[in-house]
């Protein structure tokens, strides 16, 4: 359980209130209009924005004050997920040891995860020599390698074409299930939510509405969802 308890995030005039929980082992989509604060909420969970009040707990443990790197989660941003000057293999290796002093076992694990996301043999390349889809795979590979129970994604595949995006979503779903990852994914595309999300939560009017099963939500849209879908 990733629980947000009376969480308030303030950024200038903007305030976001959240009092809800995401369930383990599920893929939850986080939707809302542009500027509704869904990315800010994700940043608060990941530890980049300090909440004004409230707590964040993961399976009961309070992580509100932990530095980003020590939280039991990985995050993929919209872009800048890879260091451009490091090879793909090194970028992924960072997921195991931030100082990159990898043991033989760790190197083997890294190569295995490269294979797993379909980047076999591309480890020595620099990110600029990869396609957009391959860059996304590399970032995902690192998140898998880190082995943190939660994975947060901030519109990670929005730069990809429809076919590629669908492919990445499928890969995400498959690996999440395979590894037992819990996923919270910010998206603005209802079809993404419908494609892979077990549950969907809406951010509207400065408030997080607790997640509900995606299928049910879209079958009987709430006023907030109707407002969003337009």
């Amino acid at each position: 359980m990733l629980a947000l308890e009376d969480l308030r995030v303030e950024l200038g005039d903007f305030t976001l209130a959240a009092d809800a929980a995401f369930v383990e082992g599920r893929i939850t989509a986080l939707m809302g209009a542009s500027g509704s604060g869904k990315s800010t909420l994700l940043a608060a969970i990941a530890g980049f924005v300090a909440p004004a009040s409230g707590r964040i707990r993961v399976t009961g443990a309070d992580i509100t004050g932990l530095p980003p790197g020590e939280r039991p989660l990985s995050i993929l941003f919209q872009d800048q997920n890879l260091f451009p000057h490091l090879t793909v293999a090194r970028n992924i290796g960072l997921g195991l040891r931030p100082d990159l002093r990898l043991s033989a076992d760790q190197r083997a694990a890294r190569d295995a995860v490269l294979d797993r996301v379909g980047l076999t043999g591309l480890g020595d390349r620099l990110p600029r020599d990869l396609s957009g889809g391959q860059q996304s795979r590399a970032a995902l590979a690192r998140a898998l390698l880190r082995g943190r129970p939660w994975l947060l994604l901030d519109e990670p595949f929005s730069a990809l074409g429809p076919a590629l995006r669908a492919e990445m979503l499928a890969l995400l779903k498959e690996t999440a299930r395979g590894e037992g990852l819990s996923v919270v994914m910010v998206t603005h595309a209802p079809e993404d939510a419908l494609a892979i999300a077990d549950e969907t939560a809406l951010v509207s009017d400065g408030r997080l509405i607790a997640p509900v099963p995606t299928r049910a939500l879209f079958d009987a849209p709430t006023p907030e969802l109707r407002a969003y879908l337009g």
Binding site: G47, P68, D99
Partner: peptide, 17 residues
């Protein structure tokens, strides 16, 4: 943020980033 999310700090950050 990327560095922070990976817990990449200290000398490792100096050397690698």
């Amino acid at each position: 943020r990327l560095s922070a999310s990976l817990g990449l700090g200290g000398l490792a950050w100096v050397r690698l980033v």
